[in-house]
């Protein structure tokens, strides 16, 4: 940065400008070209395409006429879409808060110089190695009242035992949260543990000398120092929540009825089996907008020039 500002002050001749633009750090620029092209074409290009066609009445093929906000009006009038959004909000808050809290607590417990730490870490990380589809299927069988836990315990003699969340419209979203937590909490734990290990031992010694209780050290000293790890984890977990789809398909397929539908599934259904591209793209545009509402303020705070340093 400093070098460029000096060049600018010297007002270089055009040939020098071209040299700076193309030849300077040539290898770095060449190396970055595929990535830049991918971002421009795939991400930005496809996003613009998506937003444009969400304003048309396209059916199976993107050929429709411009219809203004008609697709959005229909979208927000659709009960299934509104249920989907409500489900995602509830699921998102529960999944984010619980997986971060449980993940951190488990990491702290594993940080106590316990025996078999490597084994435990592997066990905790195993669920994450399974795909969401497998996770969904396994939990579908466990939670199915005619096959799984309920039947097993009833056969063992606990006749009144009931665990039918997966078939209960009010509880099914919590069934999803259970399967999701099982799937990704271990991953959060491992990330958090890496964060805990990056804290210098000197800090701990200093805290101990000052007579600060361990829980207080974790909460007021270690946790703030882990900011980088926590933000990374938040971004990974958060983006997984917004695109939640495969787990739902495998576990409940949106059922019973439409009680566990999520926005991504609405988009896929209307894009393919519904053959209504305009409607589907309106849904995905709203999903994008929702993500941006959270992302832009965060980016502004995170990347603003740091004056204090």
């Amino acid at each position: 940065m400093a070098e460029t500002s000096i060049d600018a002050a010297a007002a270089p001749p055009p040939s020098r400008f071209l040299y700076n633009l193309f030849r300077r750090n040539l290898s770095a620029k060449v190396a970055a070209t595929p990535m830049v092209a991918t971002v421009l074409v795939v991400f930005v290009g496809c996003t613009l395409w998506t937003v444009y066609y969400s304003f048309t009445n396209s059916r199976a093929l993107p050929t429709g006429d411009f219809v203004g906000f008609a697709q959005y009006e229909r979208l927000f009038a659709a009960r299934r879409w509104n249920v989907s959004v409500r489900n995602l909000l509830l699921f998102g808050v529960l999944s984010l808060v619980l997986s971060m809290t449980i993940g951190f607590l488990l990491a702290v417990l594993m940080d106590q110089k316990i025996r078999l730490e490597n084994t435990l870490r592997t066990i905790f990380l195993y669920p994450f190695a399974l795909s969401a589809i497998v996770t969904g299927l396994v939990w579908q069988w466990i939670m199915n009242p005619t096959l799984g836990l309920q039947t097993t315990l009833r056969n063992l003699g606990w006749e009144s035992f009931t665990f039918d969340w997966i078939t209960n419209t009010d509880m099914v979203i919590y069934a999803l949260v259970i399967a999701d937590l099982w799937h990704k909490t271990g991953f959060v734990t491992v990330l958090m543990l890496a964060g805990l290990r990056s804290i210098d031992d000197e800090i701990w010694k200093a805290a101990r000398v000052d007579g600060i209780p361990t829980w207080r050290t974790y909460l007021s000293i270690v946790l703030p120092m882990m900011r980088g790890v926590i933000i990374t984890t938040l971004v990974i977990v958060g983006s997984a929540i917004v695109r939640l789809y495969d787990l739902v398909v495998a576990l409940t397929d949106g059922g019973p009825g439409i009680a566990s539908e999520v926005p991504a599934k609405y988009v896929i259904n209307y894009m393919f089996s519904g053959g209504n591209l305009g409607q589907a793209l309106a849904g995905s545009t709203i999903m994008l907008a929702a993500v941006l509402v959270f992302l832009i303020p965060w980016a502004i705070i995170e990347f603003r020039p740091k004056k204090e340093r």
């Binding site: 009960r79 009825g257 009680a259």
Partner: peptide
């Protein structure tokens, strides 16, 4: 029926049946 209409009917029937 167009597949769009069919999908809407499916959504409605599923919701009615589960509730």
């Amino acid at each position: 029926l167009s597949s769009d209409t069919q999908q809407q009917l499916v959504d409605l029937n599923q919701e009615f049946f589960s509730d």
